[in-house]
């Protein structure tokens, strides 16, 4: 059931006072857990649980001709499937706008941060390059799927290794121990605006009460933080002040998330 009008009102009221139904602070994430290697058939795979939200992501590698405009770069293809297994709100059929937008946000976060060094995925310039297929499947939706997906993908990529390549053909099922060329890990954070406040890691009920959201993907270089991707969504427009304030918070919080991810990847 979509949340009733009065629950929505209650959530708005509480958030106005800086409170949440589950007792968290507005910027407090639920504890998250990363599990690596959920499918041995994948070149890399991971499961992420944030509260009751669960997402799996997997990496498969293939080879093919490069794009004409980037003859030496590997290719990256990110797909999200919102299968109705994970929520009664999802429907069977081709990916809808929600799935496509999520995939695009994760794609841009990976691409623009340069997490995967696509230059190093060249086998023969102009002829053969690696393609990285990233597939994301939510298993249980209790909110914050974008951030959960990004963490799952980062973990799966972190774990991924190349398959064996013989005479320009991938030997599926035969994995090497050579890791993917990775550089700057992007941290993806989505802020939801409920009433006049912003919060992190919403539950589904909080998402339904939100009128706008903004996603930011960031990397660090020593003390400097860079913004690589942004996505403002939802019906309500935002003021510049709100956006810069939220981004300032994001830059501070991102370090904590980064540390938490690193700790679990070791």
């Amino acid at each position: 059931m979509e949340i009733a009008g009065l629950t929505k009102k209650k959530i708005e009221e509480m958030i106005k006072e800086g409170k949440r139904m589950d007792g968290r602070g507005l910027l407090e994430m639920r504890p998250f857990e990363i599990e690596l290697g959920i499918s041995k058939k994948a070149e890399g795979s991971a499961r992420v649980k944030i509260g009751d939200t669960e997402v799996v992501a997997g990496i498969k590698l293939g080879v093919g001709e490069p794009f004409v405009d980037s003859p030496e770069d590997g290719a990256l293809i990110v797909t999200v499937e919102l299968w109705p297994l994970a929520s009664e709100k999802f429907e069977m059929g081709p990916p809808d706008i929600q799935a496509i937008e999520m995939a695009r946000i994760v794609d841009r976060s990976l691409r623009e941060s340069g997490y995967i060094d696509l230059k190093k995925l060249c086998v023969k310039a102009g002829e053969l390059v690696w393609t990285v297929f990233v597939d994301i499947y939510p298993i249980n939706d209790d909110g914050n799927l974008i951030d959960a997906s990004a963490i799952a993908v980062i973990a799966a990529l972190h774990e991924a290794v190349f398959p064996e390549l013989k005479e320009d053909k991938v030997q599926y099922g035969e994995l090497t121990d050579k890791k993917l060329p990775l550089k700057n890990m992007p941290i993806v954070m989505t802020f939801y605006k409920v009433g006049e406040s912003f919060l992190l890691d919403p539950t589904v009920a909080e998402e339904e009460a939100a009128k706008a959201r903004i996603t930011v993907a960031m990397t660090f270089d020593k003390d400097e933080v860079f913004i690589h991707a942004l996505q403002k969504a939802g019906d309500e427009p935002l003021e510049e002040r709100e956006i810069t304030e939220v981004l300032a918070i994001a830059m501070k919080e991102a370090k904590k998330v980064h540390e938490k991810i690193l700790r679990q990847l070791k």
């Binding site: 058939k41 997997g58 990496i59 297929f133 597939d135 599926y172």
Partner: peptide
């Protein structure tokens, strides 16, 4: 899952 099998 696309990555449940050796070839995607």
């Amino acid at each position: 899952l696309p990555f449940s099998v050796a070839e995607r």
